[in-house]
């Protein structure tokens, strides 16, 4: 009984936290974009425009909900749901901190510690594609279907380099469970470098980052939403809160991907050379590990916004060339070299 209650508290906590992150990300995106572009950005809704996401939400809720007459109604409504649901669910296996020790009982800061965390993530990542293609096709609009097809092609092509980078991680750490990978990143190797994934797998890190940007439909891979070419792509026919769910789901996706990058490559909750559990009590250690994790995720969230307003969009054939002809050979090469190094140093 107590265990179910603890699990429920963790679920609610992580759910609320991810929602808050996504909401604040809309504000960060707009103000960050504005600051990079030499302009103030929203500054009327509350001080520094902090209440802007609230105003957007209120406006979207009270707008008229239009379902096009010839659209397939059920699939039309299912699209946004299928897009946002996997983004939230992936968080079930991400370790967002180490553990609390209360009355001798260990409470892991992870909703569920399955030992096939990897496969779960890759599988759910593929489900997000359904949301887009259903939304695009069910709208009965040529721009939507084109946007949906482009996005599907892009997402499916970049899952291969994603998987290859993750395979290399599995080779290095020898396990599929995310918590074990995070635990294995404590300490140092070669004397100076922390045991983080980015130092052991630099090429894999770059592959994973590029694939993550493509999975999130973010610039430079945001062809599915390219305005000048296909109006608004797959969410052309969506208005009011359905659009809100698509836009929101995109930000939740970004939060999820940032957390995954942190877990695999940047040592989850570990500080570089300091071992926090040595000088902090059991409960404050749990909180400190959560804060460190959150700061790292925040950096990657900012990186998503930063890159968006720096780089222009790739052309469609450039996206496909990059995914199939350049990243996949690099991924295979990465696995080969990793296996070689492990064999030689074992």
């Amino acid at each position: 009984m107590g265990e179910i209650l603890i699990a429920l508290i963790k679920v609610v906590f992580i759910w609320v936290w991810v929602l808050l992150c996504a909401v604040v990300m809309t504000w960060v995106e707009r103000r960050g974009a504005a600051m990079i572009q030499d302009r103030p950005g929203p500054n009327r809704a509350g001080p520094f425009g902090l209440l802007q996401p609230l105003a957007d939400g209120i406006k979207l809720f009270t707008k008229e909900d239009i379902v096009p007459a010839k659209a397939k109604k059920i699939l039309f409504m299912l699209g946004p749901l299928l897009f946002s649901f996997p983004a939230f669910s992936t968080f079930a296996v991400v370790p967002f901190g180490d553990k609390f020790v209360i009355d001798g009982k260990e409470i892991l800061l992870q909703v569920s510690n399955v030992n096939i965390g990897f496969l779960y993530i890759v599988a759910l990542g593929s489900m997000a594609v359904y949301g887009i293609i259903l939304g695009g096709w069910a709208s009965n609009n040529k721009y939507s279907i084109l946007g949906g097809l482009r996005s599907t092609a892009q997402l499916v092509s970049y899952e291969v380099p994603w998987g290859l980078a993750l395979l290399a991680i599995a080779l290095v750490y020898g396990t599929f469970s995310l918590r074990d990978i995070a635990l294995a990143q404590s300490g140092t190797f070669l004397g100076v470098l922390p045991n983080w994934g980015v130092f052991k797998q630099p090429l894999g890190f770059i592959l994973f980052m590029v694939a993550a940007y493509a999975e999130a439909n973010r610039v430079p891979f945001d062809l599915p939403e390219a305005e000048s070419e296909i109006v608004s792509g797959y969410h052309t026919e969506y208005g009011s809160m359905r659009l809100g769910l698509y836009l929101f789901g995109e930000y939740v996706n970004i939060v999820t991907l940032s957390s995954l990058i942190t877990t695999f490559y940047f040592g989850a909750w570990h500080l570089p050379y300091i071992d926090m559990s040595a000088f902090l009590g059991p409960i404050s250690y749990g909180i400190a590990s959560f804060i460190v994790f959150f700061l790292k995720v925040a950096f990657f969230l900012w990186l998503f916004v930063w890159v968006r307003w720096t780089v222009p969009r790739f052309r469609y054939d450039q996206v496909m060339t990059l995914g199939w002809r350049e990243l996949i050979p690099l991924g295979l090469f990465n696995i080969f070299v990793t296996a070689l190094v492990i064999q030689l140093t074992a």
């Binding site: 707009r30 302009r39 950005g41 929203p42 009327r44 305005e227 109006v231 608004s232 052309t236």
Partner: peptide, 11 residues
């Protein structure tokens, strides 16, 4: 965009 008109949409 200061007034919140940040997202000009063509749809």
């Amino acid at each position: 965009a200061r007034f919140g008109a940040e997202r000009p949409s063509f749809s």
